[in-house]
């Protein structure tokens, strides 16, 4: 992928905060996100996710390394012109209404009056705040504030959207609403960089995921790549497999284990699965469910974090 096709390109990014604690937030991060891609960055609290986004937006200065947005130096004003940002724990001034906030941030982004008149009502409609727009933001719920945050991030029609914990603190209904908006935004071909520790959200939305741990990008890949675990299967039976049954299966499997009516098999090849099912059927075991070949994103995340901590 050439630089011109990249929405985000980070090379050897390092950030050590000054001060007594001297936190080393980023340690040589390399990352590339293609245009139009939805990239999810996972990490524990304090892993460096927000610092990475802030460095990309020039809110925090990197100690070393470089970053480019849409081929432009991330320090440049021109780069920020094409980027939208929903910060974590963002706070609109209390005196602003939904409408004046949108107007204010649109004008800060140098959006023309005609464009503002066109885009602001449409965005407020998109995030479901059209009726609440004349009200002061101080009276908004957390979910409404998050949706307004999303709308302000989109007000200047950015090509890249940085969302830092967009559903944090929002109830399940609000989360679903925000996810809906994101899916619609995704359809418009924007690049989205999503910081989150809500794994299910990332799993549902993102094309590619990176796991940041202690300032290092520990793993990266598509959901498919990250969760693929060859040979691990779980069979749900109508009753617990007894010891005799397990003995029958052992010649065909690397590992056999039961957990209640769940039978866990680790197989060297997929053909062995058919042989195991035949043996179970022959012993009159009923098969009620079959899953396997994949770990959940949560398992991958926890394993990665554990590995990093160990190393």
């Amino acid at each position: 992928m050439g630089s011109a096709e990249l929405a985000i390109e980070v090379r050897g990014l390092d950030k050590r905060y000054r001060g007594k604690r001297g936190v080393h937030a980023l340690r040589g991060v390399d990352l590339r996100v293609a245009r139009g891609e939805i990239y999810g960055l996972l990490g524990r609290n304090g892993a460096g996710k927000t610092t990475l986004v802030k460095v990309l937006l020039d809110i925090v200065r990197a100690s070393s390394g470089s970053a480019a947005l849409l081929g432009l130096d991330s320090h440049s004003v021109e780069a920020r012109r094409r980027v939208g940002y929903l910060p974590e724990d963002h706070r609109f001034p209390d005196y602003q209404t939904g409408l004046t906030a949108m107007e204010f941030y649109a004008r800060l982004s140098d959006v023309s009056r005609a464009e503002r008149q066109r885009r602001i009502p449409a965005l407020l409609e998109l995030v479901g705040l059209r009726d609440a727009a004349p009200r002061k933001v101080r009276g908004y719920s957390k979910g409404m504030k998050q949706r307004l945050g999303l709308a302000q991030a989109l007000v200047h029609d950015p090509a890249v959207l940085f969302l830092d914990e967009p559903t944090d603190g929002v109830d399940p209904v609000g989360r679903a609403e925000i996810r809906d908006v994101l899916m619609r935004v995704r359809g418009e071909g924007r690049t989205i960089f999503l910081n989150s520790h809500l794994l299910s959200e990332v799993e549902q939305i993102c094309d590619r995921v990176g796991i940041l741990e202690a300032g290092r990008l520990a793993r990266e890949g598509t959901i498919e790549e990250l969760t693929r675990v060859s040979g691990a299967w779980k069979l749900e039976l109508d009753r617990e497999a007894d010891a005799a049954m397990q003995d029958l299966l052992r010649p065909h499997a690397v590992r056999v284990a039961t957990h209640g009516r769940d039978l866990h098999l680790e197989l060297e090849e997929e053909a062995a699965l058919d042989r195991c099912i035949d043996l179970l059927r022959a012993q009159r075991y009923g098969l009620r469910g079959l899953s396997g070949g994949r770990a959940s994103l949560e398992q991958v995340f926890l394993a990665t974090v554990e590995e990093e901590v160990r190393s």
């Binding site: 937006l57 004003v77 012109r81 939208g84 910060p87 140098d110």
Partner: peptide
Amino acid sequence: PSLLTKGTLDLALARPIG
């Protein structure tokens, strides 16, 4: 100080303005 409030400043600094 209200401009520099945590959470408010990020919204402004991410804009194309020095």
